[in-house]
Computed example of a mutant assay.
Amino acid sequence: MEKVIEIKNLTKLYKNGRGIKDINLDIYKGDIFGFLGPNGAGKTTAMKIMTGLIKPDSGEVKINGYSVLEDYEKAMQDVGCIIETAESYPFLTAYENLKQFSRYYKNIDDKRIDEVLEMTSLIKYKNEKPRKFSLGMKQRLGIAAAILSKPKVVILDEPLNGLDVEGMIDMRNIIKNLAEKEETTFFISSHLIHDVELTCNKIGVLYNGKMLNVDTTKNILKNYASLENYFVSEVERNGRI
């Protein structure tokens, strides 16, 4: 099994006592990893460190074998991500937005742009401007931009936020297809327990900045009626520290 993301003893504490403490994680090729925890548990902090937006107090993150801290460009060269909100240029069309993003990469032609618009069900809106889009459509455009360069790793912070049921199902299918067909590895944070259960094959629970447990969805559902039951029992077992 090829390790794609390695997180070792990652710590980042803020003055208010929030943050993450000593996180360890290994994610393998083709995994759809669900980083599950309530808002304020430290998920975004961890993901900002993983994508080089903030520096940790201590610890290390490697992506595809390269250290994010020491070899940032190499670590990020095969990574697509959306952290916090999917940004777009409101006055460019969906197509022009992706054209703009494609300049950061080599070898992305118009055919690839149409392909990702098709995958994210935006092809019929390709000449419309995102300022008219619903939150769900903006999210889809963000995903389209994140997968444009056929990255090996896609890091998504709350990608299902603001999507309606149909949008969630679409998004789930896009993620599963890419993991299966292109062996893309996904690292997805969410507080939506049910969606993580349906989307991810591996789940880590983050609570109060600490990793409580990491297991496969299959194993969890063998032992618990639902992911929610598992989550509650993990939190209880760890004494709501």
Score class of each variant (00 low, 15 high):
91 F>M: 08
92 L>R: 03
94 A>Y: 04
94 A>H: 02
96 E>P: 08
96 E>C: 01
96 E>M: 00
97 N>K: 04
98 L>H: 04
98 L>C: 06
98 L>G: 03
98 L>F: 06
101 F>P: 00
102 S>T: 02
102 S>W: 14
103 R>V: 00
105 Y>Q: 15
105 Y>P: 11
106 K>I: 03
106 K>R: 15
107 N>P: 03
108 I>W: 00
111 K>Y: 13
114 D>K: 03
114 D>M: 14
114 D>S: 14
115 E>I: 00
118 E>K: 10
119 M>V: 05
120 T>P: 03
122 L>W: 04
122 L>I: 08
124 K>D: 11
125 Y>N: 11
128 E>R: 15
130 P>D: 09
134 S>E: 09
134 S>C: 13
134 S>H: 13
136 G>K: 14
136 G>M: 12
136 G>R: 11
136 G>H: 10
138 K>D: 06
138 K>P: 11
139 Q>K: 13
139 Q>S: 06
140 R>P: 07
140 R>T: 08
141 L>Q: 09
141 L>G: 06
143 I>A: 04
144 A>R: 12
145 A>S: 10
146 A>K: 15
146 A>V: 03
146 A>S: 10
147 I>H: 03
148 L>D: 14
151 P>I: 04
152 K>D: 13
153 V>T: 07
154 V>I: 14
155 I>P: 13
155 I>V: 14
156 L>D: 07
158 E>V: 15
160 L>T: 15
163 L>H: 05
163 L>A: 03
165 V>H: 07
167 G>V: 08
171 M>F: 15
171 M>C: 07
171 M>L: 15
172 R>D: 02
173 N>L: 14
173 N>T: 01
174 I>Y: 06
176 K>D: 02
176 K>R: 08
177 N>T: 14
178 L>M: 05
180 E>L: 06
181 K>Q: 13
181 K>I: 12
182 E>W: 12
185 T>A: 13
188 I>S: 12
190 S>D: 09
191 H>F: 07
